[in-house]
Write a protein that binds this DNA or RNA. Structure first.
Lengths: 191, 191
DNA sequence: TACTATAAGCTAATGATATTAGTTTAGTCA
DNA sequence: TGACTAAACTAATATCATTAGCTTATAGTA
C-alpha cells in the first residue's frame, strides 16, 4: 500500500464533516479512521488523543470563522461592515452547525497545538482588532467598544445557536427576525 | 439492603450536579451509579438509556429555567419585567453552566418522557405565553413580538454561553457589559 | 545506487463505558 | 400469608479510546 502524506489534512476535513453531520459530541475515532481508510490506532500518528483532535477542530473553526468575517468586512466600515459581518457569522454557523460549540470556546485557554507549524496568534486577539477597526466610525470610548462588541457577538452567536437547535420553535421566518434584530441593534447604539 | 423509592429523583439531582461540574458531554452512567451507591445496570430501572437520561435533563432544565423566569417576572411588566427576566436567565446559566446546551434544545423535537407522570405541556409554549404577557405594554404586532422575543433570547442566551466558556476573553467587567447591553436593547425597541 | 531514518501504517491487548438478559429480593397490597 | 412489582444484582457483550510494539514505504544522504 502506498503511504499518503496528506492524512493529517484529510483527517481534519473529514472530522469537520462528521461533526457537522452528527454533532460536536459524536466525533468518534473508530468511524473517522474507517472513513480515512486506516485503522483506528493509526490516527494517533496525526493527533495525540480524541481531546487533542477536538482542540485542533476548535483552532480550525476559529481560523475559518475569523477569515470569513475578515472577508465579509473587507473594504467596509461602520454599519455596512457590521451587517456584513453579522451575516457572515450566521452563514458560517449555518454551514457548520457542529462547530458552534467550538467557536464559543476561547482558544486562549487551550494548550497550544505546536503540532506542526503554527505562528499561534490568538484568534481572539485578531477578532478584536478586526472588530475595533470596524467600529471606529461610531467614535466610542474603549469601554463602550468592548460592551458593544460583546452585545453584537452575543446577539449573533445566540441567534445562530438557537436557530440551529430549533430553539425558536415558531413558524415565523428567521431571516426576517435576524434583519429586524440587526436594525434594532443599530437604533440602540446610534443613541 | 433497604430499597429506596427516591432513586429516580436522586438520579436526576446528581446527574445535574455532575453535568454542572464536568460539562454536558461528560455525563457518565458508571460514575453516576457509583454516586448513587448502586451498580451501573440498576440505572436502567430509572431511565431507558443514557440518551433518554439526557432527555430527562433537558426537560428538567427547561422546567427550572421557565420557573425561574416566571418568578422573576411575577407581578412585573414591560421594561422592569424584561430586565428581571434577563437577569434571571443569566443567573440560571451561571448556576447551571452544564445545562446551557440543554436549554438551547427545543423540547418540541424530543420524544415525550411519559416515563412517570407528566402533563406534558410544551415548555416552549409556556415560555412564549409568559413572554407575550410581559411584552404587552410595548403594543407590538404579533410579528414584532416574535422578532423581539428572538432578539432578547438570542442576546441573553448568547451572552451567557460566551461568558461561561470564557469566550469574551477580556478583562472588562461582564456585569457592566450585560447592563449596558440591556440598556441598548431598550433604546433599540422603544423606537 | 545502496543505506538509513522517519513517518505512516499495522496487530494485539487493555480498560472504560453502555447495554441486555436473566436472577434475586424487599416491600406492598389483596 | 402469598403474590406481585419495583429495584437491585451478576454475568456477558459490544463499542471505543488508548498503548505497546512491530513493519515497511519513502525521502534524503553517503
Amino acid at each position: 500500500m502506498p503511504r499518503r502524506t496528506d492524512t493529517k489534512e484529510r483527517m481534519l476535513v473529514i472530522a469537520v464533516k462528521m461533526v457537522n453531520e452528527e454533532g460536536w459530541d459524536s466525533l468518534n475515532l473508530h468511524r473517522l479512521a474507517k472513513k480515512l481508510g486506516i485503522k483506528t490506532p493509526s490516527l494517533y500518528n496525526h493527533c495525540k488523543s480524541l481531546e487533542q483532535l477536538r482542540h485542533q477542530l476548535i483552532y480550525k473553526a476559529h481560523d475559518e470563522l475569523l477569515e470569513a468575517l475578515r472577508i465579509a468586512a473587507d473594504g467596509k466600515a461602520g454599519k455596512e461592515a457590521i451587517i456584513s459581518w453579522a451575516h457572515a457569522y450566521r452563514k458560517y454557523g449555518k454551514n457548520n452547525p457542529g462547530l458552534l460549540p467550538a467557536i464559543a470556546i476561547s482558544t486562549d485557554n487551550l494548550p497550544p497545538l505546536n503540532w506542526d507549524d503554527l505562528p499561534e496568534k490568538s484568534a481572539n486577539e485578531l477578532f478584536l482588532n478586526e472588530a475595533m477597526r470596524i467600529l471606529k466610525p461610531f467614535k466610542l470610548d474603549e469601554n463602550e467598544m468592548v460592551h458593544i462588541l460583546r452585545m453584537l457577538r452575543s446577539m449573533v452567536h445566540g441567534f445562530v445557536v438557537l436557530e440551529q437547535s430549533a430553539g425558536f420553535g415558531l413558524p415565523q421566518d428567521s431571516n426576517e427576525s435576524f434583519t429586524w434584530m440587526m436594525d434594532r441593534f443599530f437604533e440602540g447604539i446610534a443613541q
